[in-house]
Design a binder for these strands. Structure first.
Length: 488
RNA sequence: GGUCCUGUGGCCGAGUGGCUAGGCAGAGGUCUGCAAAACCUCGUACAGCGGUUCGAAUCCGCUCGGGACCUCCA
């Protein structure tokens, strides 16, 4: 396993190229992923990012790294827009629904966990909330002020981008130049507090009627959005850690600001490898609630939506996502999902066959090379679609063994079983969702198929077909193979 | 308007300067009482136009189309 660990390459957004992954502390990985702002149900686009980084986490873990995986919950500070009176997203939703802000937070945090559980994602090791780290955020602001990269204005504190840029490149992650940013700045009302439109809030002064507010050295207020990730990643992963992930749309300004905040407070760039997942589109267009072009996971699973011809299970959706690279855009259509569903069924069927297939004298295929190709694919910047292709090579091999056209030695069979399970269930996070594991149904099916077998032995085709058609109507497919009859 | 990404066979999607992933769909075949499944065979695709090269879909330029960010967004 250690040799595979050496070969991992990661596309680093900061460098714009694939780089060999060298952890700061050998054998350990610090991984931070920007979590959701819990003011609404997560939609499928949000889920893609979390599923992508779940795969990243799973593979790192599989390689034998001890990973500390931190993913935050944003429950304060995320403003609706950038104007000074911009409303907090949580507070706005609370006002609209006449609920306490923390009721909103609770409701949508539960929804988020529930949905991710359905997608079989592994829970992060630490899931900190912004409201739980106000003190850490205040401390970080102090450090930034002490180092001369921030200023106070009317009870708010802003980050001085221009001053920072004089000594550090602001925009290095997103490839922006401060001059371009300045010339493109849109006029927003009520930005008198800032020295410069590019400056971003570290602490915002809160008005009397504001519900979510805390005392600070600068008065009563609440923390800026970008700050929470910096404060919490520093607290749990250190001033500099290995991997920071998030959606592409967070690259600017959010991640750019995190680099600036970390550097301004701690003196070091906070992250070694920046990873960005690409967007999920629906019928060719970006998912967006405002235009109605979005779909919630629950609507997808139930089939209660206007976009899909039928319901799709979470594992089919996950498999579909794994067939595309995390850095590529992916388009979600009914047709593509239907195709993915068949591929998923085929893979699951082969996984079952792999458990019952018999070992022979020797292998007709180089199984070690096959397994090596799994690692090779994933080591190349987590190339899950290539891995899936390689897994289907194995599927073909397994089916051929079953048909007696190929053979496998017992040591190789054990190896293949172990690695296939590790990659399908462990790394890709794909589990068998089919109903065939229903314990109560199994003895009934054994009986029914036994009766059908008797009829077939007597060449009583009308009876055997009646059973088969009846089962088909109930959604159960019967397959006659050389080794007997199976169903699913 | 600015910055950047992208355009692959019927569909979805990898990848590479020359050795032509994979899934789904389609055609033919083997097996089967018939099906289903499985297996075998079949598609010479890389937006368009130029250029570099012995050779490009892969590099460069332009044109057209799609997308992201620049303002909240996974």
């Amino acid at each position: 396993m250690s040799t595979e660990k050496e070969g991992l390459k990661i596309y680093n957004s900061l460098a714009g190229t694939k780089e060999k992954f060298i952890p700061i502390n050998e054998g350990f990985v610090g991984l931070y992923v920007c979590g959701p702002t819990v003011y609404n149900n997560v939609h499928l686009g949000n889920c893609r990012t979390f599923i992508s980084f779940d795969m990243v986490y799973r593979y790192l873990h599989h390689l034998g790294f001890k990973v500390r995986y931190v993913r935050n919950i944003t429950d304060v500070g995320h403003l609706v827009d950038d104007a000074d009176e911009g409303e907090d997203k949580i507070a706005k939703k609370a006002r609209l629904e006449e609920l306490e802000p923390m009721e909103i937070v609770q409701q949508y945090t539960l929804d988020f966990h529930n949905v991710l559980e359905k997608f079989n994602t592994v829970a992060p090791n630490i899931e900190p909330t912004a409201t739980g780290h106000i003190i850490e955020q205040i401390e970080m602001i102090k450090a930034i002020l002490d180092n001369g990269f921030g200023y106070e204005s009317n009870g708010s504190v802003y980050f001085d981008v221009e001053k920072y840029n004089a000594s550090h490149p602001y925009g290095e992650l997103s490839g922006r130049k401060i001059e371009d940013l300045l010339s493109n700045t849109r006029d927003l009302d009520g930005q008198d507090e800032k020295n410069n439109p590019l400056d971003f809030a570290l602490w915002k002064n809160a008005a009397e009627e504001h519900i979510m507010k805390w005392p600070s050295p600068w008065g009563v207020g609440f923390p800026g959005w970008h700050l929470e990730c910096s404060a919490m990643s520093t607290k749990y992963l250190g001033e500099q850690f290995d991997i920071h992930g998030g959606g592409m749309d967070l690259k600017f300004p959010h991640h750019e600001c995190e680099i600036a905040q970390g550097t301004a407070s701690n003196g070091v760039s906070p992250v070694k490898y920046w990873m960005h997942g690409n967007m999920l589109t629906l019928n060719g267009k970006k998912m967006s609630k405002s235009t109605g072009n979005s779909i919630l996971p629950a609507e997808l699973f139930s089939g209660n939506n206007e976009f899909m011809e039928k319901p799709f299970g979470p594992m089919v959706v996950r498999f579909f996502m794994m067939q595309a690279h995390y850095r590529s855009p992916l388009d979600f259509t009914s047709e593509a999902l239907t195709a993915a569903e068949k591929g998923y069924d085929k893979l699951m069927e082969a996984m079952r066959s792999l458990e019952v297939v018999k070992a022979g004298e020797q292998s007709s295929v180089d199984v070690k090379a096959m397994v090596a190709s799994f690692y090779e694919a994933m080591n190349d910047d987590f190339n899950a679609p290539i891995l899936v292709a390689k897994l289907f090579d194995a599927v073909k091999y397994i089916n051929s063994i079953k048909d007696g056209n190929q053979s496998i030695g017992s040591a190789d069979l054990q190896l293949l079983q172990k690695e296939m399970n590790a990659f399908v269930a462990g790394v890709l996070g794909i589990r068998n969702d089919s109903s065939s594991s229903n314990g109560k149904l199994n003895p009934v099916m054994d009986l029914v198929l036994d009766l059908r077998q008797e009829a077939r032995a007597n060449k009583d085709w009308s009876t055997s077909d009646k059973i088969r058609d009846g089962l088909a109507n109930a959604g159960i497919v019967v397959k006659d193979t050389k080794d007997g009859t199976s169903w699913s």
